[in-house]
Design a protein around this nucleic acid. Structure first.
Lengths: 208, 208
DNA sequence: TCATAAATCCCCCAAATAGGGGGATACTAT
DNA sequence: ATAGTATCCCCCTATTTGGGGGATTTATGA
């Protein structure tokens, strides 16, 4: 496992790009094999570079970093993409991860942590900056003060799975009319009158 | 911000409990104010302890750790719960986070990392062990080889939000019949014949 | 003890919805 | 040229939904 880790960097800011390249290249066990200032430029040659890990910026000229991830993964299926950016918006983060990024670091990350993260990602980890980890964990947390009862929450979850009243009744071993009653109460409490609105409100407020 | 961090530990294994207590208590800036071997025991007194952070085991006698989290958060709304366990099953992890845990460490975590994580959690971070972070990040990643086209994926997402054909047609500025066609194709490709089954399969395979 | 919430079940009704058929056309990329 | 995609059109029926109106039982808490 003492193989050198081959790193490519895609970053449009020259100063940062050179800085990272120098820092990482100077570290034992790491080799910066190429640097690019955009995806468009990288796409031509990166497949032959065969890096283990790509450090990727989000704000790039041309194809942005988020959209570049699936393209890079297609060119290099066994390569890990590590996002290194100033963006901290939830959408950006979740889109980057959904698109296949294996880690997400913000640019205030100390260089030792960046270098450590490159190794971590190649060993199957999922490195994140502290502030990113907070957002990611929060995205899982449910609202502790739901107006809905347990049963109601459970039924709303099944509605969120696209199930009909009949299917829900079967699954919970209760009568169709009981399911109706619960749904009526859910609608009353959430002040909505359709499945779609109930789901939307419940997801927004993390009731389900 | 140089205040001492008050820590409580809930862990049924005496050796581990004493070990953690010793390690953390001996560290500058940390104070272990109480240790308990179960939630039931802790519930009586922990509200008056007022810890900043609770280190919580999952496999506990009586009320298990997962179920204890919301109860602890109710007793101490401003306290952070940090899970420290051997369990690494996806369900356990996601349930713990959904219930309000602010971090998740596995027991092979080196003590320096545990101590660092306690500080991190109090500063709004979301510390995780490397293997946990990997699972968490994977849970966001979509399948890159979906059989569905972009439009089909988009429509299936809206179905997953409980929307009717008419609502989808409105939202996408296309005809009701076009939505129908797409849904027919989705059902064909996924080999299902209902919304619920399509959603289930799509979620399982991370197509949406 | 009395009110409240929760969970269960029952009936009426009309309108909307879903899913199974059968097509067509135009554009794009390979 | 062929396949895939996106768009639109028609037939049909059974299912589903949501709005009314109830009732009963069991906890739980004030």
């Amino acid at each position: 496992m003492a193989r050198t880790i081959k790193v490519s960097i895609i970053e449009d800011d020259e100063t940062l790009r050179d800085g990272y390249a120098f820092l990482i290249g100077a570290t034992e066990g790491y080799d910066v094999i190429s640097t690019y200032c955009s995806y468009d430029e990288a796409s031509k040659k990166i497949a032959t570079d065969k890096p283990d890990v790509i450090l990727l910026d989000i704000e790039l000229p041309g194809v942005n970093g988020i959209d570049a991830i699936p393209k890079l993964k297609k060119l290099l299926p066994n390569c890990y993409v590590l996002i290194l950016t100033v963006y901290e918006s939830e959408k950006q983060i979740f889109n980057a991860l959904a698109n296949g990024a294996s880690g997400y670091l913000t640019k205030n990350t100390p260089s030792t942590k960046i270098i450590e993260s490159i190794k971590e990602v190649r060993e199957g980890g999922g490195p994140m900056s502290i502030n990113i980890a907070r957002l990611v964990i929060r995205s899982f947390q449910k609202n502790q003060e739901s107006p809905l009862s347990k049963r109601e929450t459970q039924i709303l979850e099944l509605i969120g799975e696209g199930k009909s009243r009949a299917q829900i009744a079967n699954e919970l071993f209760i009568d169709l009319e009981t399911v109706r009653s619960h749904i009526k109460n859910i609608y009353l409490k959430l002040d909505v009158n359709s499945r779609a609105d109930a789901i939307k409100l419940a997801r927004q407020n993390k009731l389900i």
